[in-house]
Structure formats: C-alpha cells, structure tokens
Amino acid sequence: MDNLGFVCGASAIGAGLAMIAGLGPGIGEGYCGGKAVEAIGRQPEASGAVTKQMIIGDALAETTGIYSLIVALLLMYANPFIGNFK
C-alpha cells in the first residue's frame, strides 16, 4: 500500500470519527427542546419568548457539532496532509 492511499483512507476514517461529536449537540438540543416544552406547558402565554430563547440556545449548543463538521469537511475536501505526497 502506498503512502498516499494510507493517508487518504486514514483521512476518511478521521472524518467519520470527527462526526461522532454530533452526539453532543444532539443530546444538548434535545434537553433544550424538552425543557422548552415543559416551560410552555407550565406557562402557555410565554410560548413566544420561550421559543426564541430555545432557538438561541440550540444555536449555541450546535457550535461543537459545527466544529466537528468543519474538521470532517476539511479532511474530505481540503485535506491538509495530501500535500506532503505530491
């Protein structure tokens, strides 16, 4: 097996492993949505404000997932390691 093939394969595995980080934001956003539903159930008249805060909280919880996505995309489309073998 040549070195380039090894690097490409390892990068593909690395991209897949990076996306395991998607677990975290999923759990976090699930909590966020569940708590928002609880809050709306307790106070239905505040549903607008609660939804707004929930979306912002979701966006913040998503950050780590987005970072892992960017690492995965870099490994797939703009691999920094391949340059060493050209």
Binding site: A59, E62, T63, I66, Y67, L69, I70, L73
Partner: peptide
Amino acid sequence: ISQALRLFGNNLSGMV
C-alpha cells in the same frame, strides 16, 4: 469565529 463557522457550517452541510 464561532458565529462565522455556525452560519458557514449549517449552509455548507445542507449543500453537501
């Protein structure tokens, strides 16, 4: 940085 990457990542992932 996180603000830029959030918008970028969300839209690029949709495209991919």
